[in-house]
Design a protein around this nucleic acid. Sequence first.
DNA 1: GGACACTACGGCACTCAGTACCCTCAAGTA
DNA 2: TACTTGAGGGTACTGAGTGCCGTAGTGTCC
Lengths: 223, 223
Amino acid sequence: MRDALIAAAFQLFLERGYEATTVDDIVALAGVGRRSFFRYFPSKEDVVFPDHERCLADLTAFLAGSDEDDEPVARVCDAARLVLRMYAENPSFSVQRYRLTKSFPALRAYELSVVWRYERALAAYLRRRFAGWSDGDLRADVIAAAVVAAHNNALRSWLRSGGEDDAEAGVDHALRFVQDSWAPGGEDTGGGQPEDDVVVVITKRRTPLWRVVRELETQSDGA
Amino acid sequence: MRDALIAAAFQLFLERGYEATTVDDIVALAGVGRRSFFRYFPSKEDVVFPDHERCLADLTAFLAGSDEDDEPVARVCDAARLVLRMYAENPSFSVQRYRLTKSFPALRAYELSVVWRYERALAAYLRRRFAGWSDGDLRADVIAAAVVAAHNNALRSWLRSGGEDDAEAGVDHALRFVQDSWAPGGEDTGGGQPEDDVVVVITKRRTPLWRVVRELETQSDGA
DNA sequence: GGACACTACGGCACTCAGTACCCTCAAGTA
DNA sequence: TACTTGAGGGTACTGAGTGCCGTAGTGTCC
């Protein structure tokens, strides 16, 4: 019955839009009573995100089950991959939902509150791991936000592709950017370059440093 | 009349809670018609955040009015300070609102959508500035999220203090953490060095960029 | 002064999400 | 048979938000 309601809801949402579809329409199509809808979904928005509650529980469990030896940033990146996998399990459903949420502000607002809960779960884990550091909480909040932003950047790009691209590769690439910023050494996994290969940078003094960095970044990977 | 509605709403919200206060209660206390409430505020949530629309416009204008020489990350940090200043202008109001939003999920969800709009404004600016960089959009999204997270970390800590702490100092400290991660050279404000003086940097390939930058920063002012 | 707009506000009626309460029916159990 | 339990249905209600219209004040032009 839960699945029947989800199917009916999506059919109508895609046909005539989210706001133009009432709960009465959905239950009429699904052939169930109106009261039953609210037994399965606390609100009309919830029917659009039926699996996030479980995913959030998985994510929390995953973080709770990590030990002291894990590199914290790498761990939250793996947690983000967990979320991506949920989307990737049902590409067509995820893409449909993406188009829906993109066009209806009410759904976007709901999605934000879901994402916020993921972010707080990551931040809570990082705060534990950074306890005692100076600015540990700040670091935790910023890194959690960065991980979520990177994940969402890759996820949205995958969704825009209609689920055709390689979702895992995209999110790996995006998360590497975050790890390079805060989990130094993470990118140094080997490769063929000899360690003592040398780069020489020549620039005018007083060039804004960010311009130098930009030049370095566009020309090489690493330094 | 707008101010009368805000005052009446906050009085009732603080007295009996957000959800227990109906729009009818508010308009009765303010002595205006119910229909007028919705003329000034599109929804009941909006009365809690009466100045964000203007602040968002200020922020957008601030970013639009910047030129190519500005360091992008420093610019969005300054934009974040703009938002903080709006909170700091009315400490007691901000603290009251903070306690309200903390305890009512509906308000928290609304606040998230407001914050999201700020973040998108910052990201849009950064995307323009990073256009052409490899992973420019990703970088823009991540940095925007980090700036917002740092700002919110400092803001919440100030709000929890009841508006007693130094808000500006707190947010400066938090934003410095972000700038140190991505906007090296922020301290480059002048000095007498001749323009054509040349700096040579020698480093190993595959050294994490941030290490190079740190080294540069500690050894010279500028590049 | 009178006709004309324009604006701000109030009142009324409506839709729809969400809730409280109670009903039915079926399945199991003493 | 009587009793409980749980899934679902029906009804009536509250409250947010909208559309429509009426009305009163405030100009402005003739």
